[in-house]
Design a protein around this nucleic acid. Structure first.
Lengths: 215, 215
DNA sequence: TATATTCCATATCGAACGTTATGAAATGGA
DNA sequence: TCCATTTCATAACGTTCGATATGGAATATA
């Protein structure tokens, strides 16, 4: 048929994501994006339709790469609190890249674009929910080891009326949701502090203090 | 001598601050600012020198108005934890304005500009420190009621060796600093969540959970 | 009232923006 | 080997950017 494409869209998105993450949406021009991806306006518009389309693709790429590493960290075995501490430490690591301390693209997007860009806002919200669900899953994994486990439960349920059980379950689930949402926001908070120029020691203390809310 | 100025710089800054807070720096044009302040490019450049100068003035104005209300809330009497809860609730109120849920200008600036704008970054950092100091002062006010107080101290110091006193003081002070820094970051976190489009109920749960870290 | 000076509204500047048009280069099927 | 088609690099489009120049209106002093 015709000439073949000479670039890989996925690679272009990855490069564009780096630029957007570093400089934000408005301060990244098509020429900048063209330079950093090595693609040229024709290619970018042909595949992504617009600067905005490319940006949305970059948001998806962020979730599939950076955020995926956080979610993976939350799948680690062990006590929830320790897993969370490790995951948040990993988050902090991920906020620094060869481009500098660029923070979290989703957090940056929330403040720069969300109120005026429904599509970007939807992706940010979905991302927050994704994080919260991962935290909640981890928290509930520990809260109810009711299923057959190898080790015996440390805290044996004493004097637990059957009627109250459902209420307890609800309470536990509710608190887990609150803490999970809080931790998802904390992930954004880490990105925010990195972006604000705080050093790792200070952010480490922030994480340590936030963990006190896990209970 | 000559013709008098027809606008009040302070009012112009206030209007510019509202626009910057709503749309960010890069998405607010001189024409927009000219329209919303009613001043015209000549006046703006004559007084503020540049768009960037006007923005820095807007950051100062934010501290002197919005943040001042938060600092005032932190001066309220009563148990630290309750005062903090009230102050954070006040923060949430302040994030909504006639222009919508615009969030915190300092938080927005941290993510949009700080890495590439040293002057803005310095103001953001100073603002964070200001908040942290206010929280720390409040926390320490409660931690050491050593000075002559009307009511008797509830927790009488039992078996406290003189040598350990200094160390305890240091520990208390250190923990107060950590919590204070955490709470300052929480203020930004509230602004971030507002900007991300979370509703008040969700942010209220975030505040409630964060308060668990106060201890 | 005359004048020098400053401010205002507006026009305008060169540059950069996001996007599209253009012509040469490349490629699979006839 | 030619052709139809698609991609490429690049020029160009109209618009808007931040910033400045300009001419008339306003004012304190003389």
């Amino acid at each position: 048929m015709a000439r073949a494409r000479e670039f890989e869209p996925e690679e272009a998105v990855a490069a564009a994501m780096r630029l957007f993450r570093s400089k934000g949406y408005h301060d990244s021009s098509i020429r900048d994006l063209s330079d950093c991806t090595g693609v040229g306006p024709y290619g970018l518009y042909g595949v992504f339709g617009s600067k905005h389309g490319l940006f949305l693709a970059a948001l998806d790429h962020y979730r599939k790469t950076v955020t995926a590493e956080v979610l993976q960290a939350l799948e680690a075995p062990g006590p929830a609190r320790e897993v969370i501490a490790e995951a948040l430490a990993r988050v902090l690591e991920l906020m620094e890249t060869p481009d500098g301390r660029v923070g979290c693209l989703m957090c940056n997007t929330a403040t720069e674009l969300a109120p005026q860009d429904p599509e970007a806002a939807a992706k940010v919200k979905a991302h927050l929910d994704l994080l919260a669900e991962a935290f909640q899953k981890l928290l509930l994994r520990e809260a109810k080891p009711a299923k057959a486990g190898k080790a015996a439960p440390k805290k044996a349920p004493k004097k637990a009326p059957k009627k109250a059980l459902k209420q307890d379950r609800g309470k536990v689930r509710e608190e887990a949701r609150d803490v999970a949402e809080f931790l998802a926001a904390t992930v954004y908070g880490i990105g925010l502090l990195v972006r604000a120029g705080q050093d790792d020691a200070q952010i480490g203390r922030y994480i340590k203090t936030a963990l006190k809310a896990v209970g």
